[in-house]
Design a protein around this nucleic acid. Structure first.
Length: 423
DNA sequence: TCTGGGGTCCTAGGACCC
DNA sequence: TCTGGGGTCCTAGGACCC
């Protein structure tokens, strides 16, 4: 049996752990650059606000309703996520961390009362981390997802919904909209509704062959899972990434290449750290810049350029150097750049890394040691990013918007909450 | 003024091979 | 008039996920 554990309104819940007065009040968390609402409390949803709403469009209305908005504090969310996963790992035979706020637990089949087990897990996570979660328990991951929706939606389940008989399965699927099924996106939802398929049950009762023809093998897999056949493979540990991107939208249009160089250095810094975290090296890189696609009056310009490097790299200076060379190729004076980014691809491990024919092997080893030293200093408590590229300047700080930031309650000494107990 | 960021997998079609 | 059969590799684009 699988249990899908889903953190409720995760980013909002993280903020509420450290500001409990926000429980019961409408809260939203914004995307980077304070652009869109990406997480909403139930109270905010009840007011009609939706995930993806551009903040500038809803700001006045939100403030009128007393909605509290936060800029995304992803270091905090990452740390809170790790706490939740630690608790779950102690309770499961195996744990697959699926995303920052979701994980699949592999359950001991000998458990007698799965519903009760699920409620106990939810209580323990709440007690140990402050984060409310919902569990769906079933034979397949897709059905577990269906269960978790019910657990979240109806308080009667007390955060835990089990689908362990065919009767429950049929009933749950008949009450689930086809678009709410894991694996059915916007596009396929529309195609199915055009065919008159509105519920998950109707989809599950289609002919297997016709599902495969229309929706290829991914659609067929969803169909099999809904019919009780577990066929989504398990990943015990997150596999190494095959591509890594770092990109941002900016608060204002950027006309000066110097500012874009700083942004590229910031992306390179992020990419270098992520590469070294998974012990990989990148052979190929693409940089891109784009004007504001929503501003129809302004002249539009997007361009990108790629380079295959002479040898796989993971050191920040090399990445930044290549990124700036690419920027010089694509930048045009006179366009207000609103968004930029770098993607690195063709990642290899240290073992698979082939230096260029003319590389100085001693120099490679030296660069590895330099980065190891830099990472060690920058990851020590109290001194994040103490050593950085001079060309980074202020990085993204001055060019992205972050007007509603909360504190780094769990990872920065200065930000730890102090509680004054008056006698 | 103002609209996110980061991924994976699958397929079709082109280029190329014998 | 008429033009095989079988395969690999790569890429772009579409669909999905959080």
């Amino acid at each position: 049996m699988f249990a899908l554990v889903d953190c409720n309104n995760f980013f909002v819940s993280c903020e509420r752990v450290f500001r409990p007065s926000l429980i019961g009040r409408p809260v939203i968390v914004l995307s980077n650059n304070d652009g869109c609402a990406v997480a909403l409390s139930n109270e905010a949803k009840a007011l009609g606000f939706r995930r993806g709403d551009p903040y500038f469009k809803i700001k006045t209305e939100a403030e009128r309703h007393g909605v509290v908005a936060f800029s995304g504090n992803h270091r905090l969310y990452g740390d809170m996520s790790a706490r939740v996963m630690t608790v779950l790992r102690q309770e499961a035979i195996d744990l697959e961390v699926y995303s920052i706020d979701e994980a699949f637990m592999h359950l001991d089949p000998a458990i007698e009362d799965f519903a009760d087990y699920g409620r106990r897990i939810a209580r323990r996570v709440r007690r140990d981390t402050g984060i409310p979660v919902s569990l769906g328990i079933a034979d397949t991951k897709t059905l577990a997802k269906v269960g978790a929706r019910f657990a979240k939606k109806y308080p009667g389940y007390q955060s835990s919904c089990v689908i362990d008989t065919d009767e429950k399965r049929v009933k749950a699927l008949s009450l689930t909209d086809i678009g709410d099924v894991w694996g059915i996106g916007r596009r396929n939802k529309r195609r199915l509704i055009e065919q008159g398929i509105v519920t998950a049950l109707q989809f599950a009762r289609l002919e297997r062959e016709s599902v495969r023809q229309t929706f290829t093998i991914t659609g067929e897999r969803t169909w099999r899972e809904l019919n009780g056949e577990a066929c989504i493979p398990s990943d015990w540990t997150a596999p190494d990434k095959r591509t890594i991107t770092s990109s941002r939208s900016f608060a204002h249009d950027i006309y000066e290449i110097e500012e874009l160089r700083q942004a590229m250095c910031a992306f390179a810094t992020i990419l270098g750290r992520k590469l070294r975290e998974q012990n990989s090296y990148a052979l190929e890189m693409t940089a891109y810049i784009a004007t504001n696609r929503f501003n129809e009056r302004a002249p539009q310009y997007t361009n990108s350029a790629s380079i295959t490097l002479p040898e796989p790299v993971s050191d920040t200076p090399a990445i930044a150097h290549a990124a700036i060379a690419l920027l010089n190729r694509i930048w045009r004076r006179g366009y207000g750049i609103k968004k930029a980014g770098i993607t690195i691809t063709r990642l290899t491990t240290a073992e698979g890394r082939q230096p260029s024919l003319f590389a100085d092997v001693n120099d490679l080893a030296k660069r590895d040691r330099l980065m190891a030293a830099l990472d060690s200093i920058n990851s020590s408590p109290g001194s994040p990013d103490r050593v950085r590229l001079a060309a980074l300047g202020n990085g993204l700080k001055d060019i992205t918007r972050r007007e509603h930031a909360s504190r780094l309650f769990t990872t920065r000494l200065d930000d730890i909450i102090t509680i004054n107990c008056k006698p």
